[in-house]
């Protein structure tokens, strides 16, 4: 029974590597890399469930009786496109963040944000006192 599920376990490990990179790393580009790994592993999950032992690629031809399931392939084609769309948008945001904050490290950005927060509050209280 172990052999029958090994593919799923490999996929789970890959997914978790991706998810870990997203959560644990502070660098914004690395987070997006992590997301890409996470998504690609999900694609592998779908594709591996479509495989039929002895089947061939789902293109009809003479003399082939057994085909792998085409539906997951279709779904994953769509999902790949969604993935690249997300990556592109995420990277665009990273470029803008880099311009606005001068850094792409989560820590730095949070630090800078807290500073602005304090400044606006300070101004507000000063305004109230005067």
């Amino acid at each position: 029974m172990i052999i029958g599920l090994y593919n799923d376990w490999v996929v789970v490990v890959l997914m978790m590597i991706g998810l870990y990179i997203v959560i644990a790393h502070g660098n914004l580009i690395k987070k997006i890399v992590g997301l890409a790994i996470f998504q690609t592993s999900v694609f592998i999950l779908y594709i591996s469930m479509a495989k039929v032992e002895g089947g061939s690629a789902p293109i009809l031809a003479e003399g082939i009786k057994q085909f792998s399931n085409p539906l997951p392939h279709v779904l994953i084609l769509t999902a790949i496109v969604v993935g690249v769309a997300t990556t592109a948008l995420g990277l665009a945001l990273v470029i803008r963040i880099n311009e606005a904050y001068g850094s792409i490290e989560e820590e730095d950005i949070q630090h800078l944000d807290n500073q602005t927060q304090d400044e606006t509050e300070l101004q507000a209280t000063e305004g109230e006192q005067s």
């Binding site: 580009i29 997006i32 890399v33 890409a36 690609t40 694609f43 592998i44 594709i47 591996s48 479509a50 495989k51 089947g55 061939s56 690629a57 789902p58 293109i59 085909f67 792998s68 997951p72 392939h73 994953i76 084609l77 790949i80 496109v81 993935g83 690249v84 990556t87 592109a88 990277l91 990273v94 470029i95």
Partner: peptide, 28 residues
């Protein structure tokens, strides 16, 4: 994906994952 009979998906993944998104990341 090719080994898993998903040739269309493999084609797309190679063009998109290995091609376009890597390129975009390098630019960034």
């Amino acid at each position: 994906f090719v080994a898993m009979d998903a040739v269309d998906v493999a084609f797309t993944e190679a063009a998109v994952g290995a091609g376009i998104s890597t390129l975009l990341m390098l630019v960034v």
